[in-house]
């Protein structure tokens, strides 16, 4: 019945949604940021343990739809061991990919989110954790929201 949806709910996404990775608090965190998607009620909190500009460890907790949970889970897998500049660069690529479907450069496993652009209402779900990680890296204390995201 839902064959058309395989683009959106790829197996990797379903897997990370059911069994999110790095899904716990992080006592050693030096930074954290909250992401809130008021439309859906998605609430995420990201924890980062930074060593200079390098993300030594990263985790998240919260509740949300399949897309937002899988996005946060895959983000934490990607970001572990990366630098602030790496994550910023990938944010740009992911943002472009989920809003237009275009993949520029190597996005690795995150390519599973390319199908999201066909579902305008769900772009916010995919990008929420990325806004939160950017806020954490920039030391912003206010929770981020996707309400102003143009989709």
């Amino acid at each position: 019945m839902f064959d058309e949806l395989n683009d959106l709910y790829q197996q990797v996404i379903l897997d990370h949604c059911r069994k999110p990775r790095n899904f716990h608090e992080l006592p050693a965190a030096s930074r954290s940021a909250q992401g809130h998607n008021p439309l859906c009620g998605d609430q995420l909190k990201l924890f980062l343990a930074l060593d200079g500009d390098t993300i030594e460890d990263i985790s998240f907790v919260g509740s949300g739809c399949c897309i937002s949970k899988a996005s946060a889970s895959l983000l934490t897998e990607f970001a572990k061991g990366k630098t602030k500049a790496d994550v910023e660069k990938m944010f740009g690529r992911v943002h472009e990919m989920v809003t237009t479907g275009k993949i520029e450069g190597d996005v690795g496993k995150l390519a599973v989110f390319a199908g999201v652009h066909k579902y305008p209402a769900r772009v916010k779900c995919a990008i929420l954790s990325w806004h939160a990680v950017m806020a954490a890296l920039h030391g912003e204390v206010q929770p981020v929201t996707t309400e102003n995201e143009q989709t």
Partner: peptide, 30 residues
Amino acid sequence: NDVHAHDVVTLADQAGVALRGGHHCTQPLM
């Protein structure tokens, strides 16, 4: 259980069924 309302609504839409998922403008009630 364990399925977010927006996932339900996206799938239902694919089957032609228009539902609404969210807080329905009643956040305190939620």
